[in-house]
């Protein structure tokens, strides 16, 4: 009960601030829409040429959007909202020093982490609806199990929030650091993860490398379920990798919170 209440309070606070600032909210909706449209039309062009996707009652555009939606969502949109958003939240809290006020209060670290997670979950879920709603204009459908898809999206959000928490508490000290971090590590990982360029055109050695990139597993898992109607058995490698990574990130987030407490816990 205590945890639940605290979690809600933290999540609510983050969302209120976000809705008030609006700017990041607009970015986080414009970005996935733009990316989805670009990816969709690029895929559609390729699909038409190769005719590799010539199924009975699906047009190439529909297929293209069915393929673009999951990679855009889980690879790119959630990366910036959940990872970027978490780093921003934590760094802003350290910059304003409101974190100190939280240390004085009985708020537990678990609730704090959960609160950040819940807030970004709301944003992530919003983005999921947005992406699939737009994809549905071209009659794209979610082919596989919705539950499995939801679990994959959730695991992705956990992973991103966890990484964001680690970066925000350990590496980024000021808001300026965030851009540098994202550009240096984020963008290459996104490309390697298949968020912008579909992984089936990757050379083999990049594919081998990609197996170490969690984003690759997120996109592959969701792509399998969403576009190809795969079940858990077909995507099990990607799914369990993602699952393991999410658990790892919860642990890492918890450790880095502890460390931050040790270093910064004083007025």
């Amino acid at each position: 009960m205590k945890y639940w209440r605290e979690t809600l309070a933290v999540a609510q606070r983050i969302l209120i601030e976000l809705f008030r600032r609006r700017r990041s909210l607009i970015f986080w909706s414009v970005f996935p829409i733009a990316l989805l449209l670009l990816n969709g039309f690029i895929f559609a062009e390729r699909a038409q040429q190769s005719m590799a996707f010539a199924f009975e009652n699906a047009t190439p555009t529909t297929l293209a959007f069915e393929n673009a939606a999951p990679t855009t969502l889980v690879g790119a949109a959630l990366f910036f909202s959940c990872l970027g958003g978490t780093v921003t939240t934590v760094v802003a809290e350290r910059e304003q020093q409101t974190l100190k006020r939280l240390f004085i209060s009985p708020l537990s670290g678990t609730s704090y982490f959960l609160g950040i997670f819940v807030a970004h979950c709301c944003i992530g879920v919003g983005q999921s609806f947005l992406v699939y709603a737009i994809a549905s204009f071209w009659k794209a459908k979610f082919q596989g199990s919705l539950l499995l898809g939801a679990i994959i999206i959730l695991l992705s959000i956990i992973s991103y929030v966890g990484v964001g928490f680690v970066l925000g508490t350990q590496l980024a000290r000021r808001a300026d650091d965030i851009n540098a971090l994202v550009a240096t590590f984020g963008v290459p990982l996104l490309i390697l993860g298949g968020a912008f360029i579909p992984s089936f055109i990757f050379p083999q050695f990049l594919l081998n490398l990609a197996t170490f990139d969690p984003i690759y597993h997120m996109t592959e898992a969701l792509l399998g379920v969403s576009a190809n109607g795969n079940g858990l058995t077909e995507i099990s490698f990607h799914f369990w990798f993602l699952f393991g990574f999410a658990i790892l990130m919860i642990g890492a987030g918890w450790l880095s919170y502890r460390r931050m407490l040790r270093v910064e816990r004083r007025l």
Partner: peptide, 12 residues
């Protein structure tokens, strides 16, 4: 505690 600096959420 009212700390030495004003520790408040600026956007709220």
């Amino acid at each position: 505690v009212a700390p030495q600096e004003n520790l408040l959420y600026q956007g709220l």
